[in-house]
Each structure stands twice: as structure tokens, then as C-alpha cells.
Write a protein that binds this DNA or RNA. Sequence first.
DNA 1: TCAGGGCTGATTGTATACAATCTTAGTCTT
DNA 2: AAGACTAAGATTGTATACAATCAGCCCTGA
Lengths: 222, 222
Amino acid sequence: MSDNQTLADKVFSELTTAIVRGELRPGSKLSEQTLVERYGGSRAPMREAIQKLEARHLVVRIPHAGARVVSLSLAELRDIYEVRLELESMACRLAAQRMTDAEIAELYGLLAEHEASIAAEQGQAYYQKAGDLDFHYRIIKGSKNHRLHQMLCGELYHIVRMYRYQTSTSTRRPLQALQEHQRIVEAISARDAELAELLMRRHIQASLTNLENRLAEEEGRS
Amino acid sequence: MSDNQTLADKVFSELTTAIVRGELRPGSKLSEQTLVERYGGSRAPMREAIQKLEARHLVVRIPHAGARVVSLSLAELRDIYEVRLELESMACRLAAQRMTDAEIAELYGLLAEHEASIAAEQGQAYYQKAGDLDFHYRIIKGSKNHRLHQMLCGELYHIVRMYRYQTSTSTRRPLQALQEHQRIVEAISARDAELAELLMRRHIQASLTNLENRLAEEEGRS
DNA sequence: TCAGGGCTGATTGTATACAATCTTAGTCTT
DNA sequence: AAGACTAAGATTGTATACAATCAGCCCTGA
């Protein structure tokens, strides 16, 4: 029953985490033969795993030329952040309308945990980051829109996490982020959808403007 | 050079149009063997084609049990429309900011064509539908956000087109749609991003509310 | 020295064969 | 008669082999 997942799925999972964690650098080649040597099995499941990665935009495949880990330009990253900004604001609005009281209570609990971990200063960047992801994840799920959840968690978030170490956002300001999270939850709790959306938009906007500044200065240089 | 596309790609294209046009009914099974008999070749390319369809959410694949053409519930369709509403409004806002004057001029030209075809009453539902798609497509492209373009055109639109014959929207009111299109283009031309977004939101909202009404009455029935 | 063509090696695309799993029909039990 | 179990058949997952294509290198000629 737990062995229900196919070999291709397992390799896909392994490769996904490897790419997201940066163990496989952007631009590096993924030859099918290499994967066979590393993970065992035959080429067929490896091809399937690569195709699934391609579907999630984690690798780029060129016919007869192989697959490479995706390497995004700043412009492409800006595109992704723009879309994420819009979709996650939307998710927050819907969450304010559709989350159950129990789910909101859980959100409060999560915030309390974060607050404690920050206060104790045990919560280093890593914990804060995981907590941040968890927070956003719950709100997305609270939107009760399955497709929205799929798009944000299945297609955009891997990329965002992958490039997060570059962007240096929402990790250097844990306290401020926590306060923003608190206000968002308050808005959701008050069922104020418009305010919740606005606050989430602002919360994410910082990353985007940061990115656009870098994009502008890079264009100025060239 | 034109033969550069692989067999899997060709089968994928064929199947995509077949599904979108309704020649393959939602829920019908896609066995690999059947595809081999219909399109020739061997199972390997067929598997790849099916996987690409799965990536675009046009089929659902269950391990060891095969692939079926996706069959969406009204609730899932609502989710998709909600996301489309948000993304396409966003696209319209960005288009107002980023489209070139030449592209806007082309939009006006497109509107003139539609007006003529409606006035001559040669433009039956089919032409109007294609024209409508073209209009929306150009605005999406005008957003200059490649990922947004990918998501709307590559992932959502096939589904929307597939179920459009059910929803009966934006085909029975060609004149009103045209007028709404004209106002949208005027807003874009005036570089009024907020207004353009608002108008597009209203323009698409009709389909969504229609869908939600049907969803509500279905839930009331059960 | 450099541009261009062709060859070799490697890699991907495709075909076929085998193994594992699911589905379905039938039978048996309660 | 309804439901569960079993076995046969079919279908998918995997492995291996072959063909087609591409990348890199050497060689040739101006």
C-alpha cells in the first residue's frame, strides 16, 4: 500500500528535493544514463521522472539534446513573483471567506509557536523559513480552491524556494514578518476579505520590489 | 527541420485537439495499446504523450490503472474560473502598462474586424468565439509576463474551451461582448491600468457567476 | 590561421519483451 | 440474493535492444 508509488515517482521526488535544495545546480545536465547509475533501474522510469520535472518547470528539455536544470533569468523570476503575488493575495481573500473557525484557530496556534521560537531565539533562519512556508501553505489551503492550491504549491513554490537563497527576503526580518502574519490572521478572523488580501499583497510585495530593483540595476549596467 | 518534433509530440497535439473538441469524451479511457493502434509507433511515445497530457491536466493518470480524459465537477470548474478571472484581470492591468502602441493599434484593428463580421451577420458563433479567444490571447501576451501567458494559455484555456459548450457564455451575446472589449481597449489605450483590470474582471465575472448559480442549485438539489 | 565538412562517440527517441499490478468475471459461502 | 474470494485476462510499469539525432573533434583546403 505504501509501495504503491512507482519508481519513477520516487526518482522524481528525490530529484525535486535535490534541485530545490541546490544540490543540482541550475543549468547542470541530467542525462538519463547518469540517473540510471545513481538511482538504479532502467532508462524508462528515469525518462518519466524527467518528464514530470519538466511538467513542473524544474528542468528544461530539448528534443534530442537532453534535459537541464532550469536556470531562470531575473526577468523570468520577476514574472513568477508577479504571478505569485496575485495568486497568493487572492488565496488570502478567499481564505478569509471560506476558512473554518477551527482552521483559523490553528493559524493562531501556529503564530504562537513562531513567536515563542523567535523569542527564545532558538528559531534561526531555518525554522523561521519553514514556519513561513507553513503559514503561507495553510492560507492557500484555506482558500478551498484546489486548482489555486495546485498552481501555487505545485508549480510556483518550488521555484520560489529554489531561488530564495538569492533573494534574501523574509528571512532577515523574522520579527516584522511575524507581525505582518499576525495582522493577516486578524483580518481573516474578522472575515474582512479585502483587508486580508491587501495585507498579504503588501507582505509579498517587498520581495517583488526588491527583485525589480535588482532587475533595473542590471539593465542599467548592460 | 520541420520534422524536428518527435512522434510523442505529434500524438500529444492530436490528442489535445481531440479532447478540446470533445471527440474524446470526459471520462473515456486512453489505453496505450489503443493509441498504438490508432496512431502507429510503439507504446513508449504514447506513454510520453499521455504524460504530457497529464501535465496539462487534460487527462488523469492512476498508477497501474491507466489514463482517463479529465472529467471535472462543477466545483472544480468553478475553481478554474476563479483563477482565470484573477489572472486574466491581472494580465489586462499589466497590458495597459506594457503593451506597445503598435500592439494597441492591432487590438483596435481586431475589434474593427469583429464589428464588421457581426454587422454583416456572417460572424456566427464560431467566428465570434475564435475572435473572442484571439482578443483575450493578445491581451495576455501584452502583459509581457511569460509565465502568466504559459499558465493562462497552456494550462487553463484548454479546459475552459473544452467546457465552453456547456457554460454557454460569451457566445450568445456577441454584441455586448464586443462593446465590453471596446471599453477594455480604450482603457488600455489610455494606459489606465486599474480601469482596464476592472473592466476585464467584470467581463469575465459573468461566466463565473453563471457557473456559481448552477453550482448552488445543484447543491440545493442534492 | 581560420572556415567548413565529415566522421566518431555519446545521448536521446523508439521498438520490443518481460514482470508486476489491476480489473473483471465467475464461483462459492453466508 | 448479496458479498467476498479467486483466477484469468488485460493493462501498465520496467528492462533491454536498436535506430536516429546531436555534439565535438579532426582533417582538409584556401
